[in-house]
Design a protein around this nucleic acid. Structure first.
Length: 250
DNA sequence: CGCCAGGTGGGAT
DNA sequence: ATCCCACATGGC
């Protein structure tokens, strides 16, 4: 764990060189005047100011809940349904019947659970004018909300409010585990501390780094079949070192 | 078909 | 603290 520090910057550089800026968190329909600042899916490359509106911040929080253990492609279509039906507002979520809300978000999975979670998130974020951007809910407040765990709290802090909290997800665990830098079962805060200790606390950096890990995990570091050919971080990886030194494959 | 997807809360140990 | 499980749909 001691040696991760130097290599973590290298890991970021290799991922950045391979995949480039990721434009997270996708937020639908943002424009400045007549000029689109997002692509069709809501990504906004090298724009670290977005979201900059209450609606945008709320959409990120909703997306963070809906994507829990769920493919983003499913979430994206649900965000579209919610937007079309004008549900991307806390008061609308709070006023909705659970069954109606559940029906709208059905295709994102766990819809009964997530309907309840969205109401909790809406209740929290409609307080204190947090969505207006004058103040930011504390991590403790977020975690005290039923339905918001550590990753979701950090996703909201980082991607809705631009606060430097590194997001640790299953991909992060898998990648650091494969690299041989971690066992992979360490508690969340321990993995997060590695990033917080060794990187400048800049939201834009944490934004890209987490998004790059996700992209890399999807393209090369797959769950059951890692595609090590052409992997941009081979040279940092235990598997590669073991191959070259003739040790057995894991 | 089985596996995977940008987790969380509740309950038992 | 740590493990185990329910929660659920859609894509490949």
């Amino acid at each position: 764990v001691k040696n991760i520090g130097k290599k973590i910057g290298l890991l970021y550089d290799r991922l950045w060189d391979a995949y480039g800026p990721q434009g997270w968190w996708p937020v639908t329909g943002r424009r400045t005047g007549s000029r689109a600042v997002c692509d069709a899916d809501g990504y906004h490359v090298k724009n670290y100011v977005l979201p900059a509106t209450p609606a945008g911040r709320f959409e990120v929080a909703v997306g963070a809940v809906l994507t829990q253990n769920t493919a983003w492609t499913n979430v994206r279509s649900v965000i579209g349904f919610l937007k079309k039906e004008k549900y991307l507002h806390p008061q609308k979520i709070l006023a909705a019947d659970l069954s109606v809300l559940g029906g709208l978000i059905r295709s994102s999975g766990y819809y009964n659970e997530k309907a309840k979670k969205l109401k909790q998130v809406a209740a929290l974020l409609s307080k204190e004018k947090w969505l207006q951007g004058k103040a930011v809910p504390s991590r403790e407040k977020l975690l005290a909300t039923w339905g918001i765990g550590e990753e979701t709290a950090d996703s909201i802090l980082l991607y809705a409010f631009h606060r430097p909290f590194f997001v640790v997800d299953a991909y992060t665990r898998r990648l650091l585990g494969r690299l041989g830098w971690l066992g992979g079962r360490e508690p969340y805060h321990e993995i997060q501390a590695i990033f917080h200790r060794r990187l400048p606390g800049e939201a834009a950096l944490f934004n890209e780094f987490h998004a790059l890990i996700v992209e890399h995990a999807k393209q090369h570091c797959l769950k059951n079949k890692p595609l090590c050919g052409g992997c941009p971080v081979r040279s940092l990886c235990r598997r590669f070192r073991e191959d070259r030194s003739g040790k057995r494959e894991q």
